[in-house]
Design a protein around this nucleic acid. Structure first.
Lengths: 276, 276
DNA sequence: TACGGCCGGGTAGCAAAATTACATAATCAT
DNA sequence: ATGATTATGTAATTTTGCTACCCGGCCGTA
């Protein structure tokens, strides 16, 4: 629609062009204004605005507004921008959300499907799952534990590095470790994984490409998110890790067939009584 | 918006629910109809339709129509599909990621900026923060705790409902509760919030529009995600909640000025030695 | 240059749509 | 059962979008 206005502009009459300019200048304001307000903004009369709409193949102002609104909604791709101190809370929200969305889009484009398949196989071959993550990644590990323990095999998440070391020392060849780390460079998690591998456990890493953790793992589900200026710990990569682990869990569930899906549904219904 | 309607539906009055049903049944028709036509379709009076719009945080029918139109337009960008047993791991990943992305896009469109501003103010006026969430939301609460405790005021997350009750009973007027729940209908969290309010604590809810939890809170940061077929607990709304809380935390940080930002940077550097 | 026709654009009035104020019906607790 | 409270509809009001009409400038022809 906006593009249509731009290309139609030359073919319009003088005062209709004024309307076109006003719309192009601030389309967001237009979709919220009445015809009166638009007319005033463009310094023309109301019927002129209507004639403008008709020139763009709309039956009236209403339809024009609706079309423009839909155009605006699907217009903007999700650009990543840094947050600045002068941002309004509105800007802030848009920027952070756009950043998060962009990250997920990137994962969608980059995800290594062979690695995913391989990870599903590792799950199927294992008898129990241990999830290791510290700091922000501990949250992801816990979230994943909630998913995996429903799939039928024992799954447990540890966030304390000491306990991770100790737990890893008790693993065997039938254990599967899922190690989560944004950077893949935390000494603690690297040490833990080394111990787990000494005990012949299998390791799936959820981390950055080419990181020390990735190199030490049997399969790496890569989550490469650029976090140049996150004020806190890397939120976006946490989202990405959660989604990737969700994909893994759902992948396992789907492979498990109808039986497993029904079991999962039962697990969900079991907590229904908790709600009003 | 559509998801918002779905989650708000239960909290609406009888005849408003009729409107909700009519809109859900044929949203495309609604954006083109007048209020009269919608009222007729739903078998209610026109003011009821307006009241329905108001219940969804729109100032009137026009705005409602506009928002719905935008929702419908962006819906098809990343459209949501159910996973099926025959999906390859590639299909699966795309579908789940698309669903997650669509959810964030939706939050971007629906986020109530006044509520966000208000929430930031509540934070500034409080002396300590308690975060309550159970099940999947416990993970979100913990994630948020990691962010909030860096902002200078004590912040703690509890996931056990018993402990939540006890903790809430010890609050005072200077405490701020952040209550997280996908449905906003969990008895445990409702009870906890009731206790907290009795002790004159302020409450920010991160939950669905018009849910009992939303009604009991001072400010509600709405996260309306339709989770019709998530195999596990609602992952998408968890992502949404995390992002919304991130926005809140960053909003607080930005308000805190240069000083607070530097302090946060210092907190990040403090753990640098942990990495290779 | 004078005059008629025509195009662009505005004014005013009207009809429909949205919204408000108010009255009545339904529901609930006592 | 009864009063209070909430939910919903009716009727009046306002706002909005649109139509019909009119005025002024421009151009061509005489």
């Amino acid at each position: 629609m906006l593009a249509k206005i731009k290309s139609a502009r030359e073919g319009l009459r003088k005062s209709e062009q004024k309307v076109a300019d006003a719309v192009i200048e601030d389309p967001d304001a237009c979709v919220q204004s009445s015809i009166q307000a638009v007319a005033q903004r463009a310094q023309v009369s109301e019927p002129t605005v209507i004639r403008f709409c008709r020139a763009l193949d709309c039956v009236g102002f209403q339809q024009f507004k609706l079309r423009l609104a839909q155009d605006l909604a699907s217009r903007d791709a999700f650009f990543y921008q840094d947050v600045t101190a002068t941002d309004s809370s509105r800007d802030l929200a848009s920027k952070l959300l756009d950043g998060a969305i962009a990250s997920l889009v990137q994962i969608r484009n980059d995800l290594n499907h062979e690695a995913l398949e391989h990870a599903i196989e590792l799950y199927e071959q294992s008898e129990r799952i241990e999830l290791y993550g510290s700091g922000g990644s501990a949250v992801v590990a816990e979230d994943a534990q909630l998913k995996f323990f429903r799939l039928g095999k024992p799954a447990i998440a540890y966030s304390d590095p000491h306990i991770q070391h100790a737990a890893a020392a008790l693993l065997d060849r039938n254990a599967l470790v899922i190690a989560i780390s944004h950077s893949g460079r935390s000494r603690d998690i690297l040490r833990t994984v080394d111990i787990a591998r000494e005990m012949s456990a299998k390791v799936i890493a959820v981390t950055a490409t080419k990181s020390p953790l990735a190199e030490r793992s049997d399969v790496c589900l890569t989550v490469d998110i650029h976090e140049d200026s996150d004020i806190f710990s890397p939120v976006k990569s946490r989202l990405g890790q959660m989604v990737v682990l969700d994909i893994l869990a759902v992948g396992v569930a789907v492979r498990g067939g109808e039986h497993m899906l029904q079991q999962l549904a039962r697990a969900r219904r079991a907590i229904d009584f908790k709600f009003v």
